[in-house]
Design a protein around this nucleic acid. Structure first.
Ligand SMILES: [Zn+2]
Ligand SMILES: [Zn+2]
Ligand SMILES: [Zn+2]
Ligand SMILES: [Zn+2]
Lengths: 150, 150
DNA sequence: CCGGGAGTGATACACTGTAACAGTGCCGAC
DNA sequence: GTCGGCACTGTTACAGTGTATCACTCCCGG
């Protein structure tokens, strides 16, 4: 993760500073997608306080690079699971049971959405598509529990 | 708008109170999709203060009925432009120029998204799909200005 | 009359995000 | 070397968004 970040930063001649690395690692290491304040708390230790505003700045930077995504419906941040271009549409799969957030792309959805927007005379700049539901693992678990209970 | 609300409330045996009506009308009457605090301010007059918390409660109620939608990427609320069922997927078209938010449905997008989710082993409960860009009117305007300037 | 539920008012609070300014370190210009 | 600009971070304060909690009223059935 950090390796790719360094590569991207070299390409664009921007700095991959210690703070930015720590924020990226914090996002990647979290079980559940953390909020900015969670990250600030995680990076703070006795003797070193990382203010939320610093985290926001690092997150903005990482989102610019496409290394991190923001989940609008949760005010949370996830590490990018793919290496996609900036313009690519992504579908976020938010599990309401385990809280995990997976990420996928779908040319099929993208093209049908493009047609729908064209029909509406709308020129898209970017879009967010977030689906809440149950991931396969949780569904399997709950079904097993249901059968055991019945 | 209010007529449909009354009908829905009769069906479900819930109350369509004065406050709920006022909040619904405030959302519908606003030029731009208002935030909850905007609505609270709009409904408050000298001698009568409507607290944001009351607005939130009314908005929750109205969203339950499907009369109002929440725009996650804007923290704003829009009146429902259609009379769709609760489960139906909606695409929100957010114009970054005029700030207007339009709403459309697309069986095509819905089915392709369904296939994508099925492939991922994900069971959807509900989804949000918000596209930011330029509406037809604004695009026409800006093109005209561009040509005039060139 | 009394009890209970729905709705609202009011206050306080938690959470999320931004503005503004100061300090620090680096690097090129002079 | 010194100066000045630039990027980055720290710090504080603040704006905006949403929720918890309790009290009060109103209405309706027993
Ligand atoms: Zn990604
Ligand atoms: Zn899950
Ligand atoms: Zn609608
Ligand atoms: Zn527009």
């Amino acid at each position: 993760m950090a390796a790719r970040a360094e590569e991207l930063c070299r390409e664009r001649s921007v700095q991959f500073t210690a703070l930015r690395r720590e924020v990226l690692e914090a996002v990647a290491a979290s079980e559940r997608p953390p909020g900015a304040y969670d990250i600030a708390e995680r990076l703070s230790k006795p003797g070193r306080r990382v203010a939320p505003v610093s985290v926001y700045r690092a997150l903005d930077f990482l989102m610019e690079l496409g290394l991190v995504h923001r989940i609008a419906s949760r005010n949370a941040f996830v590490p990018c699971a793919h290496e996609h271009g900036a313009g690519e549409n992504v579908v976020f799969l938010i599990c309401r049971t385990c809280g995990g957030i997976d990420e996928t792309t779908s040319p099929e959805v993208e093209s049908s959405l493009g047609r729908t927007l064209a029909r509406a005379g709308f020129t898209p700049a970017h879009s967010i598509l977030e689906v809440e539901g149950d991931c396969g693992a949780c569904r399997t678990r709950s079904q097993g529990a249901g059968r055991a209970g019945a």
